[in-house]
Amino acid sequence: MPLNWVLVLTTFLFCVGVYGVLARRNAVIVLMSIEIMLNAVNLNLIAFNGALEGDRLIGQVFALFVIAIAAAELGVGLAIVLLIYRNSFTVSLDEVNLLKW
């Protein structure tokens, strides 16, 4: 399978994730977009692993670590979102704006 097909998919998913982070209002959707970005990175790593010579599995190991850390980050992120919701009853990023210039 050609490597560059996979890389185009990866880049596409990454950019969709970037759009999601920058454009969406709901904090949970932003978290989901981050997950898409991290998945794109994982696919990158696995694809490169398959394309490189040798028997090493560095790419897959890296991907496993990214999955573990992504899960941890999501846990912390949702805890923060819950905290905001409990104190101000909104998770809209537009309304979370007390601190100014």
Partner: peptide, 23 residues
Amino acid sequence: IRSNEAALKFFLFGVLSTALMLF
């Protein structure tokens, strides 16, 4: 609530830049 907001902004910036760095 200011502390909550600080944490949220810090977090979102942090994970976004982590994802970019990983790429």
